[in-house]
Amino acid sequence: MKTTSVSAVAPIVTSNRRQFISRLTAWSAGLLAAPPIFQAFPQSLNAATAEPILSVGKGTDYEALLVKVFEPLGGIAPFVKKGARVVIKPNMSWDRKPELAANTHPLLVKAMARLCLQAGASKVMVFDRTCQDMRLCYASCGTPAAIESLNDPRVACTFVDDRKFVPVKIKKGKGIAEWEFYKDAVTADCYINMPIAKDHKLARLTLGLKNIMGILGGKRNALHPGTGDQSLNQKIADFNTVLTPTITVMDATRILLRNGPSGGKQDDVKELHTVFASADTVATDAYASTLFGLKPDELETTKAGFAMGLGQMDLNKVKVVKV
């Protein structure tokens, strides 16, 4: 009895080797532990519907245009609930000025953020994992400055923090079983996908489905090579099963016809002053390919997304509303 009371008072002093090792293990467990596997929600934020609505608008006042594009979709309210934590994911990948059509137009992102704030979002986060130096890309693309000008503490365009990439099991994945996703993106109540339509040598075009690359961690370039189920196009569709956007707003105010996705030449840019949106990302991608003179089924990514049940690629079955 006496010995137990002594060890209770001064456990360190009387610890034997076994106790010491178990204590050491307990203490060091935290240091050795890997980040836990993150459980993404099993159902997507927005299930595919039979006849999705796709709203297309044209105009040079991009902020007004975006508001107009949302009208046939029922406005912003069905997508952004009061108090929601919203993520807006534009493309800010390249150290290029807005006119070179490598990044989503800053005014469009700003208009989107404003709509979310008006809908009563508690927090609006804007970010993208860039392909070049983050500071240069963010400064050149103009989005952080545009977001700053909203002057609202609920919204911020922040740098991606490497520590926030969490491993996620891709349960429905055909080509890939696990990858790191950005925690803020997968835990958001509402994920707004804001790609820009661009040429891409491997995916043919980079559109809404491929925009998910910007919330992936790890060595993304290693995703490029592969054939069949291992192809980039299938893996992109797989990633979209983890996080299906609440809504995809496609920036086609200007599109990049050649030398994408980074471009750099004004000759390769075509101004269309067009924006379209749909809760169905596959439908937006299918529509976007027509802007490049392509049929939706000429894009392997769109086909893979359709095959995975992520949306409708047959434009005859999409209700296209021009505003």
């Binding site: 491997l202 090579p225 750099g264």
Partner: peptide, 26 residues
């Protein structure tokens, strides 16, 4: 280089080439 070793397209180098005219082509 993967397209030479595995006969699979990769394009990572070309995609990142910052020159508007692209110093890497296929």
């Amino acid at each position: 280089c993967i397209p030479f070793v595995k006969n699979e397209s990769c394009i990572t180098c070309e995609e990142h080439c910052p020159l508007p005219e692209k110093a890497i082509r296929f």
